[in-house]
Design a protein around this nucleic acid. Structure first.
Length: 579
RNA sequence: CGGGGCGUAGCGCAGCCCGGUAGCGCGCCUGGUUUGGGACCAGGAUGUCGUAGGUUCGAAUCCUAUCGCCCCGACCA
């Protein structure tokens, strides 16, 4: 591609609305243009990157035995009513009407349509397993689109759907997709982790998210550098401390802490670290009033809470409920009953005490005294209050926690979810009646899996992970051009033109994805633009070097250029591309 | 959908408080000089000040409504 025939439009400044670096750089590089909130035009430069990603995804999906088709963006409401999602989906799903006033949706995903195809086309066990996929535009009317194409309303997704005769088959299909995803993100040159994810409310029984590691990511993942353990924050188990609870060594003591309502306040006031304090969280669940105790520096995890039987259908307690059950305002709550201190009555109402594993292993702790303006010091489970009714993992893991697999400690990093594999089971196939006849001529419901990759998001995630102060640094596999020839003075030097044209012709003939910058721009402008748009390999040809028969090669990450004889540059570039 | 903020030239912004002929930088156009790190000189074009009402002799500026966009907030590729 000659850049004089291409279309580049870069800017020095990013629009004020672009918050994160990938959005800023994509706007500055002229890859995308905003048309509305969460709606973007992909400009020529951006489309080249998009196609590179798509092609790699397509190749690996095909290699994994999936079959490509293309389902419509606009889908009739009936199918979605049949699956129940017409009512379930809420305003995130875009609904439209045609001229006959019939209801349609703009697809946010395609389980319904593919299951409809499966129930019509797949009638026999002999046709299974099957995996269909497409790469298609999606629309999700996000509550808050942001970060450019990272979280846009319209986006491009590769979604695949597998159909199997039984759960064993499904897990085989699932693992094939898991492996294919690993290959895809490896080929794309991204640093990523496959993390165990919550299967949530859809039902399913296995789920992994593929997270590109980047500081700006919206997800937090926990992983063990010493093993292959990696999980979403809500799935990473907070294991019990390795050492058992220490014996009580201090007497229970009531301390006056007027106005010290937060753990931070109390810690400062008593000159004690947060690790010595218990904090209380009050909830009301189907079981009644629940007092949850955590070490003060830990954060409660709401998804884990919901999995504790005593907290079924929980909600935060109101100040009135707290007063009624503990006889004290929030800020001074704890598990130690008042009678242990002052001979008062025990908790007036039934209270279930749920302690986090770490909290349950603490001794000589500080906590609220259930008396306004007072805390206790030297509190001990079993001695000053009952042992917790329930000990459970209810907190977010933190950096340095022991890994649940027993191998080393956890580290936390932020990630961008670019892919998700999900063993669905029969959730859709049962509802829509996707059945087949098995070997014994019995009708069976198919086992489904679904597998998504956010193609447009991958592009943004790659930039988040690969950039510097000058601009984007594309992994070679997804660069808009693999190599660019920067011809200095192409418009006025016959020597430069001849050398550049010749190299361009030979690289093109060799199948290299090469761009020739023949625009005759001033060198400063040219270099700045080529670095901004992130071409990974650059050959600079100028009169100065040609006099000595030399040109220069510089990889995007190199700090200095390498002089290469003109006669050898073709081979040099080919070698650089291969390494 | 709650809370906060912003709409002025293609982009980044000033002007608004205190009504009185709409400005700056980048970009764009013309000519010239330049040409290995976003050039310089000279000249030039570009706005119904988001939209609709209202107040006023007069509104970018004050008032009302409305639309759009951005940021913070309970899991989405």
């Amino acid at each position: 591609m000659k850049l004089s025939h291409f279309f580049l439009s870069t800017t020095k400044e990013a629009p004020a609305e672009a918050e994160i670096v990938s959005h800023q750089l994509m706007m500055r590089a002229g890859m995308i243009k905003k048309l509305g909130a969460g709606i973007y035009t992909w400009m020529p430069l951006g489309v080249r990157v998009l196609r590179k990603v798509e092609n790699i995804v397509r190749e690996e999906m095909n290699a994994a035995g999936a079959v490509e088709l293309l389902m419509p963006v606009i889908q009739p409401a009936e199918l979605w009513q049949e699956s129940g999602r017409w009512d379930k989906m809420g305003p995130e799903m875009m609904r439209i009407k045609d001229r006959h006033d019939r209801d349609f949706i703009v697809q946010p995903t395609s389980e319904e349509v593919i299951t409809d195809i499966a129930r019509q086309e797949l009638r026999s066990w002999r046709q299974l397993p099957k995996n269909f996929y497409h790469i298609q535009t999606k629309f999700r009317d996000e509550r808050r689109p942001r970060f450019g194409v990272m979280r846009s309303r319209e986006f491009i997704m590769k979604d695949a759907y597998s159909f199997d005769v039984d759960k064993d088959g499904l897990m085989k299909s699932y693992n094939v997709m898991y492996d294919a995803y690993s290959k895809i993100f490896t080929r794309l040159g991204l640093e990523f982790r496959a993390v165990n994810a919550d299967t949530g409310n859809i039902g399913g029984f296995a789920s992994h998210e593929f997270q590109v590691l980047a500081e700006s990511g919206e997800d937090v993942i926990a992983y063990a550098p010493d093993s292959d353990f990696a999980a979403n924050l809500e799935m990473a188990e907070g294991v019990a401390p390795a050492t058992p609870r220490a014996a009580a060594s201090k007497a229970l003591e009531l301390v006056h802490t007027p106005g010290q309502k937060t753990c931070e306040d109390v810690g400062t006031f008593l000159k004690l670290p947060l690790e010595k304090q218990l904090k209380a969280m009050m909830y009301v669940s189907d079981s009644g009033f629940v007092l949850c105790m955590l070490r003060a520096d830990h954060m409660v995890n709401e998804i884990k809470l919901g999995k504790v039987p005593a907290l079924a259908n929980y909600r935060p307690a109101t100040p009135e409920e707290i007063e009624a059950h503990l006889g004290v305002e929030p800020g001074y709550c704890g598990p130690v009953p008042r009678h242990a201190l002052k001979g008062n009555a025990a908790h007036p109402g039934q209270v279930i005490v749920v302690a986090d594993r770490t909290a349950a292993a603490m001794a000589d702790f500080v906590c609220g005294a259930n008396e306004s303006g007072y805390h206790v010091m030297g509190g001990n489970w079993g001695r000053d209050c009952a042992e917790p009714d329930v000990v459970a993992d209810i907190r977010n893991v933190v950096d340095g926690d022991a890994s649940p697999d027993g191998k080393g400690v956890l580290k936390l990093r932020r990630g961008i979810e670019v892919g998700h594999v999900f063993a669905l089971g029969q959730a859709y196939s049962a509802k829509l009646g996707a059945k087949f006849l098995d070997k014994d001529q019995k009708e069976q419901v198919m086992e489904m899996g679904c597998y998504g990759i956010g193609i447009t998001r991958v592009v943004a995630a790659a930039i988040e992970q690969n950039h510097d102060e000058k601009g984007i640094i594309w992994p070679q596999a997804m660069a808009p051009f693999a190599v660019v020839i920067a011809a200095l003075g192409y418009d006025r030097s016959a020597d430069v033109k001849a050398a550049a044209d010749s190299l361009y012709a030979s690289l093109s003939a060799a199948g290299v994805d090469v761009a020739l910058d023949d625009r005759g721009e001033r060198p400063g402008v040219m270099f700045a633009e080529l670095e901004l748009i992130g071409i990974p390999h650059r050959v600079t040809i100028g009169d100065r070097g040609l006099k000595e028969g030399m040109v220069e090669y510089q990889a995007r990450r190199d700090t200095v250029a390498t002089k290469v004889p003109l006669a050898e540059i073709g081979a040099f570039v080919t070698k650089a591309l291969a390494s």
